[in-house]
């Protein structure tokens, strides 16, 4: 087994262990740290998929922006000792685990049984230039819709903050 394969397996396990920490930890701060670990692992997987631009966007947007937003929300929503423990009743946990395992097993069988259309022995040479051309030539309408969505969400956040301050 060569060095890139060992690093790949390491990145994969870091991603999965980060997801487990995100879900199973009792404190919400630890869950956030687990989310950061998962994001870095997925960025590593993107690099193994020959998509370094997506990996950079992943680190910038998820690790840089969304996690900081979540950290702000955690700190603004009450002191730590007043916060409820994340562990609920065992019955609820067992039921959630059953639902999650059922979906996992069913989709795992679907993945293993399906015939994916794979093109063998072909180099993947998509550069950032190709992504930009697809974004601005073929996918112009979804791109504009996403920018509209983000503008609406910014205005909505500002409105929510004004309501919270008492001004309308």
């Amino acid at each position: 087994m060569s060095l890139p394969e060992i690093v790949f397996l390491l990145v994969m396990f870091v991603t999965m262990i980060g997801a487990l920490i995100t879900v199973l930890s009792g404190s919400i701060i630890y869950a956030m740290i687990g989310l950061v670990t998962t994001m870095f692992g997925i960025a590593g997987l993107y690099i193994y998929l020959n998509a370094p631009f997506i990996a950079m966007m992943q680190i910038l947007i998820y690790v840089g922006a969304i996690t900081i937003l979540i950290a702000f929300a955690i700190m603004l929503s009450g002191p730590h000792y007043k916060r409820p423990k994340e562990w609920t009743t065992p019955v609820k946990f067992v039921v959630s685990l059953i639902v999650s395992l059922i979906s996992f097993v069913v989709l795992f069988k679907v993945i293993m049984n399906a015939q994916w259309m794979q093109t063998k022995a072909k180099a993947f040479t998509i550069t950032t230039e190709n992504i930009g051309r697809v974004l601005f030539d073929k996918l112009m309408l979804p791109f504009e819709l996403i920018s509209l969505l983000i503008v609406v969400s910014i205005i909505g956040s500002i409105m929510l903050a004004l309501i919270a301050k008492g001004e309308k």
Binding site: T15, V23, I28, A73, S96, V99, I111
Partner: peptide
């Protein structure tokens, strides 16, 4: 798929909205 299963599990049993 593992991330999806973890997300479903957390979405169902977390108490707080941030979780």
């Amino acid at each position: 798929l593992f991330l999806l299963a973890c997300g479903i599990l957390g979405l169902l049993y977390r108490r707080t909205l941030i979780g």
